[in-house]
Amino acid sequence: TEEYEYTDEQQAREAAREWREKGYTVTIEEHNGRWRVKTG
């Protein structure tokens, strides 16, 4: 599992979409105004 943090929701969603296209399972969670994208 890798985790990436973004301050911008749009960036987080874009990144998540790219990971999904590569076949990863992706979770996005908002935490204190930051967006965490977890792949695994």
Rank of each mutant, 00 (worst) to 15 (best):
T1N: 12
E2F: 15
E2N: 14
E2A: 14
E3F: 15
E3K: 06
E3H: 10
E3Y: 15
Y4F: 13
Y4G: 05
Y4D: 05
Y4R: 08
Y4A: 06
Y4W: 13
Y4I: 08
Y4L: 08
E5L: 11
E5S: 08
E5V: 11
Y6L: 02
Y6E: 01
Y6A: 02
Y6K: 01
Y6F: 14
Y6Q: 01
Y6V: 02
T7V: 12
T7Q: 12
T7F: 12
T7M: 13
T7Y: 12
T7R: 08
T7E: 15
D8N: 12
E9L: 13
E9P: 06
E9N: 03
Q10N: 12
Q10T: 11
Q10G: 10
Q10P: 05
Q10E: 13
Q10A: 13
Q11R: 09
A12V: 03
A12Y: 01
A12K: 00
A12F: 01
R13Y: 11
R13I: 14
R13L: 14
R13D: 05
R13N: 09
E14K: 12
A15N: 04
A15E: 04
A15W: 04
A15L: 06
A15S: 07
A15K: 11
A16W: 05
A16L: 06
A16K: 02
A16G: 05
A16T: 03
R17Y: 06
R17H: 08
R17M: 09
R17G: 05
R17V: 06
E18W: 14
E18P: 03
E18D: 09
E18M: 14
E18A: 13
E18H: 14
E18I: 15
W19K: 03
W19M: 08
W19E: 02
W19Q: 03
W19L: 14
R20V: 11
R20W: 09
R20I: 13
R20K: 09
E21H: 06
E21F: 06
E21W: 04
E21L: 10
K22W: 05
K22R: 11
K22A: 08
K22D: 03
K22Y: 04
K22H: 05
G23F: 02
G23Y: 02
Y24H: 05
Y24D: 02
Y24G: 03
Y24W: 08
Y24K: 04
Y24L: 07
Y24F: 12
T25K: 10
T25D: 10
T25L: 11
T25E: 11
T25S: 11
V26Y: 03
V26G: 01
V26K: 01
V26Q: 00
T27M: 08
T27L: 08
T27R: 06
T27A: 07
I28Y: 03
E29H: 08
E29D: 07
E29Q: 08
E30R: 08
E30C: 07
H31Y: 12
H31R: 11
H31S: 10
H31I: 14
H31W: 11
N32L: 07
N32M: 07
N32S: 06
N32A: 06
N32C: 08
N32V: 03
N32G: 09
N32K: 07
G33Q: 04
G33N: 05
G33S: 04
G33V: 01
G33D: 04
G33L: 03
R34L: 12
R34D: 02
R34Y: 11
R34P: 00
R34V: 13
R34S: 08
R34A: 08
R34Q: 07
R34W: 06
W35H: 01
W35M: 01
W35T: 00
R36A: 06
R36H: 11
R36G: 03
R36D: 02
R36L: 15
V37A: 02
V37T: 02
V37F: 03
V37M: 04
V37R: 00
V37N: 01
V37D: 00
V37E: 00
V37Q: 00
V37I: 11
K38S: 09
K38A: 07
K38N: 08
K38W: 08
K38L: 12
K38P: 01
K38D: 04
T39Q: 06
T39K: 14
T39Y: 12
T39I: 15
G40V: 15
G40W: 15
G40I: 15
